Simulated assay, not measured.
Amino acid sequence: MKKLCGISFVFSLLFAVGCSQDETNAKGDNQSEPLVVYLNDFDEIIEPLFEEATGYDVELVSGNGAEVQSRIEAEKGNPNWDVVWMDGQAAFARWDEEEVLLKDLDLKNIDSLNELGTSLLPESNSYVATGAHASSVIVYNTNEISEAEAPKEWSDLASPNLKDSVGMADPAVAAPAYPFVTWFFQNLGMDNGKQFFTNIFENGAKVYPKNPNIVEALLNGDIKAAALQESNAYTMKANGEPIEIIWPEEGAPASVRYVGINKQSENKEAAEAFVNFLLEKETQDELVAAGSEGYFSPTVSDVADLDERPEDPKLVIAEGDWSAEHEAEIKEWFADQSVE
């Protein structure tokens, strides 16, 4: 596996899942080159799972969302990838509009999608959701704030008792942060969205590059509460840190993890096998069980998410097309705030 950061290589242990060795060899017999998958999560487990289940060779190129997007943009004239699998409804809507992705996917496992998965399908059928997670929930340090004064709604992050004590991730840097802020702009309208975040910024909110920076700030007392990606929040909870997690009644803005195929791919058979593999119940069960990355709402029927999450987590999702259309404007506005 190749990583975009530093271009290091990591080798995973193979373990059996699904098919016999004879069956898997037969499926991969016609493959001349490894399937190249760009992704931002699950790189530690998906390679051995897919190769053992299908017989296809796969090469993973892993990086954060911004790195994956930058690489695909840089390679438009000569793409080196077959499949992209990552968070970010805006990116996939943009790639669809730019005709980067293979349209009208004919997937044998499309009927396995649950209500959430079906609702997230684009009209072009050029990409499919494999899960959605809260790009932010409200988290507060219980050593700093009592339950009574803790924020319960998103607007509470502008409360006077949280002056200079709130953190959030930078939507221009952290991949999950853009779907978070975009929902407010689409839901409230651009002007009201700007006012919503202006209220928070004028209350002294601090913007950090990524969610792990927020975790550190919560623990060292730099902030008392935050809008924090749910996987980071539940990992803190599992580690026994003094925090509580709030899912606001209005919902938690979500980041959708999609998968799509490069329309120029010469490895379409293996690419379609990869997408179908991600829509298998057994695969999604494995993804849910994959440690901190497993905190998400599955898009396949009969797959249960982790017990730590609410029984029916309310995710609110900004539309991909709208998010892509307004991405430059929203990110530029945040950059102009110069909030430290």
Rank of each mutant, 00 (worst) to 15 (best):
L4Q: 10
G18E: 13
S20V: 11
Q21T: 14
N25R: 14
V37W: 00
N40E: 08
I46S: 02
V58W: 00
E59C: 05
L60Y: 02
P79L: 01
D82C: 02
Q89C: 07
A91Q: 12
R94F: 11
D96P: 03
L102W: 00
K103Q: 11
D104Q: 08
D106A: 11
K108L: 08
L113R: 01
N114V: 03
T118V: 12
E123T: 12
E123Q: 14
S124N: 11
S124D: 09
S124Y: 03
A129Y: 02
A132I: 02
V137R: 00
T142G: 06
T142H: 05
N143D: 15
E144K: 14
E144S: 14
A150F: 07
A150I: 06
E153N: 15
W154E: 06
W154K: 04
W154G: 01
L162D: 04
D164H: 11
A169E: 03
A169V: 03
P171Y: 08
A172M: 09
V173P: 01
V173S: 06
F180L: 13
F180D: 05
F180E: 05
T182Y: 13
Q186A: 12
Q186H: 11
L188F: 15
F196A: 02
T198C: 08
N199T: 08
N203C: 09
A205R: 03
A205D: 07
V207Q: 03
P209L: 10
P212M: 05
N213S: 14
E216N: 14
A217N: 06
G221F: 12
D222P: 05
M236Q: 08
G251H: 09
R257G: 13
V259E: 02
E269P: 07
A273I: 00
L278W: 07
K281R: 15
K281N: 12
E282N: 13
T283W: 01
Q284E: 11
Q284I: 05
D285G: 05
D285N: 15
D285V: 10
A289F: 06
A289N: 15
A290K: 02
R309Y: 08
E311W: 02
L315F: 03
I317K: 01
E319S: 10
W322L: 07
A328N: 12
E332A: 15
Q337T: 10
Q337D: 06
